[in-house]
């Protein structure tokens, strides 16, 4: 479906690329400075662009009535939502992971850090989609809910942000990063198990 309406997934990706490439222009093209702030920049922008795409996760289906059919389907609602979340990740998280090495190079990250950056993105972008689905389910019936959604979801994203950025910046100084990766992995497993069920309950509340 998304390929018939490419702007739905190209917009967040374009936002990601454009805003990251503005930083060297705005701050300084100096390699030393950029290298230090690169993990933070890439991760904050990743989060914002996922947040941007979350708005459209359910709104379209809600407006044309498909969501009603999904909720009253005899199939398990958490499973249907997990499928929807996976589709969301393929269209928002995966393109970011694929394009991140290019932007890493643009921000003077060394190859080792780029590898760690991709690893954290692989572990954590699914969490962003999974947790985001909960928020999107809750605000589904509210028009222009972008602000509310950010307020709901961003606090839950903060732990991911902390562990992911610290993993990448510590890898630049050859410090051990196992702890952060384990934390990200456990957040992923926890959200994979619980988020679809919470979203299903939230969606039923949101639809009323």
């Amino acid at each position: 479906m998304a390929f018939r309406n490419p702007s739905s997934f190209l917009n967040p990706l374009m936002f990601f690329v454009i805003s990251i490439s503005l930083f060297p222009i705005a701050i300084s093209p100096d390699a030393e400075i950029l290298m230090n702030i690169a993990p933070g920049i890439i991760w904050v922008i990743t989060m914002l662009s996922v947040l941007l795409s979350l708005n459209s996760l359910f709104h379209y289906d809600y407006d044309n009535g498909v969501l009603e059919q999904i909720v009253i389907s005899h199939h398990s609602l958490p499973l249907l939502l997990l499928a929807k979340t996976t589709a969301h990740w393929i269209l928002s998280g995966l393109p970011i992971i694929l394009i991140s090495p290019l932007l890493g190079v643009a921000l003077f990250l060394d190859s080792e850090s780029i590898y760690i950056l991709m690893l954290t993105l692989c572990l954590a972008t699914p969490c962003l989609s999974l947790i985001g689905t909960i928020g999107a389910s809750l605000v589904v019936s509210i028009k222009n809910s972008g602000m509310l959604l950010s307020l709901l979801i961003l606090p839950l994203y903060i732990p991911i942000l902390i562990f992911a950025t610290s993993a990448v910046s510590q890898s630049q100084f050859d410090l051990p990063i196992n702890g952060q990766l384990y934390f990200l992995g456990s957040i992923l497993i926890f959200s994979l198990i619980s988020a679809p069920f919470i979203s299903a309950v939230a969606l039923k509340i949101g639809m009323e």
Partner: peptide, 16 residues
């Protein structure tokens, strides 16, 4: 839910 078929106000179609 298997025994009921609900067709709502909207046609429940995706335009793409």
């Amino acid at each position: 839910q298997l025994e009921t078929l609900y067709l709502g106000h909207y046609a429940a179609l995706s335009s793409e």
